[in-house]
Simulated assay, not measured.
Amino acid sequence: MNIKQFLDSTYLKTPAQAGLSFEENKKIVEGFIAEAIEEHFKLIMIRPDMVSLAKKMIAKAESKVLIGTVIGFPEGIYTIEEKLAEATQAIEDGADELDYVCNYENFKNGDSQYVKEEILKCTQLGISHHKTVKWIIEVAALTDQQIIQLSTLIKNVVIANFKEEQYQDVFVKSSTGFYKTEAGKPNGATVPTIIMMLENSSPLPVKAAGGVRTYEEAIEMISLGVKRIGTSSAKAIAHGNISESNY
């Protein structure tokens, strides 16, 4: 097994979040892109404004690394129209994969119809452009029952509206990695939450994101059945080293 083909190497901090200038933060992004190319990771996951930069670097290196970006990130409260506009621009800039943050707050407030419409329209946009779509449900913001219900909702929308051969291109993803939890609770993928997602989103694939920082943790997630892992520790994981990352 080539673990690198499961890894979405991720850097999603804005300059403000990183406490850096735009140029300083851009240098970090360039470093992550160069590393992904050198290590032959599956994908580099970056903010939308960095997609065109990644496209140029990957083309110059004649690399097969895919480009992923986040839409409606990290709160998921953008309108459907705003998400569609952001995704359309990302596609034009060269993104291969779109990781949408589901409007989980609307879901928690009982507006499942809105979420169904969002899942349908945003997935249609991605699939119609031959892109992989992932839906971030933010497990740390949900109860176990809500994780089960939202995973099932996404699955049902996809099964009802897309062809069976397209299911593999629509993931349910655990976390943004940016959600603030209390008392040190995990804000990303854990074994229990991933099992719930796998059981209730199948036949859609699952991406574990947030909190996977070691080779052993990555292997455990893969053994459970996840198809992709989002991590800022991709190199450390691939080489069996200890990561100091908090994502």
Score class of each variant (00 low, 15 high):
13 K>Y: 08
205 P>T: 14
28 I>G: 02
126 G>I: 04
7 L>D: 03
232 S>W: 09
92 E>W: 00
59 A>L: 12
201 S>V: 01
125 L>Q: 11
88 T>A: 14
44 I>R: 05
244 E>Q: 12
35 E>D: 13
82 E>I: 00
124 Q>K: 15
68 G>H: 05
22 F>N: 13
197 M>G: 05
192 P>V: 02
113 Q>M: 08
149 Q>S: 13
170 V>R: 10
32 F>I: 13
145 Q>M: 03
162 F>A: 04
118 E>S: 08
23 E>A: 14
203 P>G: 07
132 T>C: 04
104 Y>E: 04
204 L>C: 12
118 E>Y: 10
224 L>W: 08
7 L>G: 04
93 D>Y: 03
97 E>W: 00
94 G>N: 05
203 P>F: 00
192 P>A: 02
61 A>K: 05
43 L>G: 00
140 A>M: 11
54 A>E: 07
48 P>V: 01
177 G>W: 10
123 T>W: 08
77 I>C: 04
169 D>H: 15
177 G>D: 09
96 D>S: 03
230 G>Q: 13
125 L>I: 06
203 P>N: 04
131 K>Q: 12
29 V>S: 03
158 V>P: 12
202 S>L: 03
70 V>I: 07
47 R>Q: 15
78 Y>F: 10
46 I>K: 08
106 N>A: 15
180 K>G: 06
217 E>Y: 03
148 I>Q: 04
211 G>V: 12
11 Y>K: 07
64 K>D: 14
28 I>S: 06
223 S>V: 08
45 M>D: 11
229 I>G: 09
217 E>L: 05
127 I>V: 14
96 D>I: 04
56 K>M: 08
21 S>D: 09
15 P>H: 02
192 P>E: 04
229 I>A: 09
64 K>L: 08
158 V>Y: 05
115 V>D: 01
100 Y>P: 11
10 T>D: 01
153 L>V: 12
209 A>N: 09
3 I>Q: 05
17 Q>Y: 02
92 E>I: 03
207 K>Y: 09
196 M>Q: 14
115 V>A: 04
205 P>S: 14
141 A>L: 10
227 K>E: 15
186 P>M: 06
222 I>R: 09
19 G>D: 09
176 T>M: 06
144 D>S: 10
60 K>F: 07
234 A>H: 11
186 P>F: 10
237 I>L: 14
132 T>V: 15
178 F>S: 14
34 A>L: 10
25 N>K: 12
13 K>R: 08
58 I>V: 08
210 G>S: 08
4 K>R: 15
244 E>N: 13
111 D>W: 05
15 P>Y: 02
6 F>T: 11
